[in-house]
Simulated assay, not measured.
Amino acid sequence: MMIRPLVRLLLCVGIASGLLSVAGPIANAAPGELIATQRFPVEWGDGYIVTYRTEGSDGASTLARGLLMLPDGPAPAGGWPMISFDHGASGLGPTCGASSSATLPVDVPYFRRLNALGYAVVSTDYLGLSPVTDQVHPYLNSRTEATATIDIVRAAREFTDTVSNSWAVFGVSQGGHAALATARLAPTYAPELDFRGAAALAPGSQLEYLFPLAGPHIPRSPLIDNSIAGAAVLTTAFLAGMWATDRSFDLTPYLTPAGVQVLTELRTACQDRWPAVIGGRGLGELLARPLFDDAARQAIGKYVAIPADGYQQPIFLAQGTRDTAVLPVMTQALAYEFELAGAEYEYHTFETDHQGIMGPGFDAGVEFLQRILPTRR
């Protein structure tokens, strides 16, 4: 593997500690600037943890972290084409990202499958899911998901010349939402890169219509609790991220004291703790006012929406018909919007649930990637 000269020097200097870093912020630093690399823990196998510069919730320069895995063997002429993989929800706190995992990150076996096909893989932790920046994760914020996804591609190209300028994005669940946001932004945010398209499995969409339906009017009952349990947790986590990071809209007047408590605790909680933090409380107990007024609806839409227009490259959508976390009707509605907007897309359904989409959906997504971004292996 050919490593850029400056990075090669840093590797030699930092090899004893395994962590490479550049001290202090750099004024006017470029998005995607490589800040540090660290080899994977031995038990993870080959790969790197990458720290890089990206855009914060306020638009200012900040740091994010993610993973980089390269195929074995010599790179082809022009380098390995890259897949930027967007993972599903993992939490809101600084230890919730894959790069901070105490065990092998769940998506690494999928990355190895992509490596075997001849793709280099990068995977961002998004903002706030690693301790390199003092920021709560802006969960489901379209802009920062996209910038973090794009900027790790830039960082990988700074690290090694064995990766290509050509790339695509692949995401699942929250990562599907991020992949679509990335596909819309990539041509204008990073015109120097050769972006080819996006594969999105069970993507969060139509959320700008779903979230404003929440309010104190939602009663508690076993029927309602069972039918919207997943949506309620999703909405609550979204509100926690938005409340902590969106300075343009004050959510506080919409919250009950219980809502303030829950959303504050969620700021540092990983996904496995979300149900315990929420403690069985319904949305009606957390919200003092409906989110359906103009100010709330506009702020939510600006923060989370995935528009159906403005895409320059093809899109692949996959959805499980038994999914109760991302309802099939939501992805079907997105596909219909793409149709009306004249976007180049394909939509596939599979007889599986939310977790199962990474079986047949992943395989079909890889076939799509091989069409839009062929490898030479």
Results as ranks from 00 to 15, higher is better:
Leu234Thr: 15
Leu207Gln: 08
Ala186Asp: 05
Leu114Val: 15
His87Cys: 07
Gln271Cys: 10
Gln135Cys: 05
Thr51Lys: 06
Gly47Glu: 09
Ser61Thr: 15
Leu10Val: 10
Ala244Ile: 02
Gln370Leu: 13
Asn141Asp: 13
Thr62Asp: 01
Ala120Val: 07
Ala295Asp: 13
Gly280Phe: 15
Ser205Gly: 11
Pro109Phe: 14
Ala305Ile: 07
Gln298Asn: 12
Gly24Val: 10
Leu92Val: 01
Tyr126Pro: 07
Gly230Cys: 06
Ile152Arg: 00
Gly204Asp: 03
Gly359Ser: 09
Leu340His: 09
Leu104Val: 15
Gly282Thr: 14
Ile26Tyr: 13
Tyr311Thr: 07
Ala102Cys: 06
Thr182Gln: 00
Gly230Met: 09
Tyr311Val: 03
Tyr189Lys: 07
Pro216Ala: 09
His354Arg: 05
Cys96Asn: 06
Tyr311Cys: 05
Thr95Lys: 09
Asp58Ile: 11
Asp46Gln: 13
Ala305Val: 06
Ile3His: 08
Gly18Pro: 04
Asp125Gln: 03
Leu68Phe: 07
Leu327Gln: 05
Leu286Val: 00
Arg143Trp: 12
Arg247Ala: 15
Leu340Gly: 06
Leu286Gln: 00
Phe316Thr: 00
Ala198Pro: 02
Met1Ile: 14
Val329Gly: 11
Pro216Lys: 04
Phe292Tyr: 08
Ala60Asp: 14
Gly128Thr: 01
Pro41Glu: 13
Pro138Arg: 00
Arg112Val: 15
Leu287Pro: 01
Ala120Tyr: 08
Thr103Tyr: 09
Ser100Leu: 09
Met242Leu: 11
Gln261Asn: 10
Pro5Arg: 04
Asp46Lys: 12
Val13Lys: 01
Leu263Tyr: 02
Pro203His: 07
Val172Phe: 12
Thr124Asn: 03
Glu351Pro: 12
Gly24Asn: 12
Thr95Tyr: 06
Ser130Ala: 13
Pro25Ile: 08
Ala30Val: 13
Leu239Glu: 02
Gly356Trp: 15
Arg113Gln: 12
Asp323Gly: 15
Ala276Trp: 09
